[in-house]
Simulated scan of single mutants.
Amino acid sequence: MDKLIEKFKALSDETRLRIINLFIKSGQNLCVCELMDALKIPQYAVSKALTILKNADLLTYEKEGTWVYYQLNRAVQENKSIFTFLRNFLTDKPFLEDEERLNQRLLLRENNRCVVGIIPEEDLVKLIKEKIRG
């Protein structure tokens, strides 16, 4: 019962709920820089939220060189029900805007991996426009 309470406490924060939404809707493994750009929040806020979600067994991670990719922890049976429930209710405008920014950011991936890292927003917009054009 304590683990279930911990999961719902982890989901009681707006930033963490927005992050979980991006994992649920994208179905992707995501790195911190991609989440930063999608949510337009600083690295420390994303990292803190990811740690709480990971400690609640909602996320897992894997390292690839200097990159760390997080993903939904579907190994825990109760998570599957939680993720299904959230998928149906996280449909407000802010969640949709986050999803759109993430989808644009994911266009910059190569071989389904982040290669850009953290960059200023104006440079990010230019890179996305170039990728869309050509």
Rank of each mutant, 00 (worst) to 15 (best):
L53A: 00
F23M: 02
Q43H: 11
V76F: 13
E110F: 07
P42R: 01
K80E: 03
I119T: 00
R18P: 02
K40I: 11
F83H: 08
G65D: 02
L22M: 07
I128H: 04
Y61Q: 14
K40H: 12
L30H: 09
D13E: 14
R113C: 06
E130I: 05
V76E: 14
S12L: 09
L59A: 03
T60N: 14
Y61D: 09
A38M: 06
L53F: 00
A10P: 01
R113I: 03
R16K: 15
I52A: 04
I82Q: 02
I128F: 07
A45N: 10
V46M: 03
K3F: 12
L96G: 00
K63P: 05
N103K: 11
V125N: 13
L90R: 04
K3L: 15
L86R: 12
F83V: 06
F95L: 02
K54V: 05
K126W: 05
A56N: 06
K131C: 11
S26M: 01
P120W: 14
R101N: 13
L107E: 10
Y44C: 07
E64M: 14
K54D: 08
L108E: 12
E121F: 03
L72T: 00
L124I: 03
I52L: 05
A38D: 03
N111E: 13
V76Q: 08
L59K: 05
F89A: 00
L17I: 11
I119L: 03
D98Y: 08
D98N: 15
E78M: 13
K48A: 14
G27C: 10
L59S: 01
P42A: 08
K9Q: 12
M36W: 00
E97R: 09
N21K: 09
I24E: 03
A56C: 06
L11D: 05
Q71F: 11
S12D: 15
N111C: 07
F89I: 11
K40L: 08
Q77R: 15
Y70G: 02
D92H: 15
E122C: 07
L127S: 14
T91E: 07
I20A: 12
V32I: 14
E14L: 08
I119W: 07
E97C: 03
R16L: 06
T60M: 10
Y69T: 00
R109Y: 03
G65Y: 10
L58N: 02
T84G: 11
L35R: 04
L96V: 11
Q28F: 12
L22H: 00
I5R: 02
I132S: 12
L72E: 02
V32M: 13
A75F: 07
T91I: 11
Y69I: 10
E62T: 15
F85P: 00
K7C: 03
Y44K: 04
Y61F: 09
D92I: 01
F8Q: 07
E78A: 13
D92M: 05
